[in-house]
Amino acid sequence: MSDLDVRDVRVSFGDTDVLDGVSLRINGSETVALLGPSGSGKSTLLRVIAGILLPDNGTVTVGGTDVTHTPTHQRGIGMVFQDNQLFPHLSTLDNVTFGPKMAGESRSSRNERGSAWLERVGLAGFEQRSVTDLSGGEAKRVALARTLAAEPAVVLLDEPLTGLDRELHDRLAVDLRTLLADVTTLLVTHDSDEATVVADRTVLMSDL
């Protein structure tokens, strides 16, 4: 699995510096939790790494390749958004297989893979469900399966467990640890307990 190296990233909106020379290194297969209060620029950093936001300065390197100016869809970086952003016009299975479809995989092969991923996240049999009917926990699992099915080199998770009830939160936290074991992952959260359960290592936003 690829290393992720973020070096000296600067982003300012108008006069405010949101990220002021942030550097972070994650080794292959490692899961790192990034902890910080809301408004500390965690989500902005994820957006820079995913290529949604171009930094004013600094570089993003994945597996030794500088991707700072590579368009998002060619970076091989997956991201689970805080509000999931499932595609409401597609079935659950078509959401999960969207990545393989973009990669040109045949329908039968990607559907098989999609079903396998649904099973891994505990949603076997959900293939034809409408994503608008899913519960909060189910939607989060679909979003996770969708990102992982695209087999990205690095996975970014933006507050993946926020808004779920306590029991669901704890169960999914344990599941996350298993699912992300072999993937280079950066997880953003404001909950230090969550960080300890899911991640191998925790870094504070204020230390970067």
Partner: peptide, 25 residues
């Protein structure tokens, strides 16, 4: 939501695919 288009991009969809597969429908 612009993030829906971003989500498609993180799954490997080019601008054209984002338009035809996500925005247009």
């Amino acid at each position: 939501p612009t993030d829906m288009e971003h989500a498609a991009a993180t799954l490997g969809a080019s601008r054209w695919h984002v338009f035809t597969q996500i925005s247009l429908p």
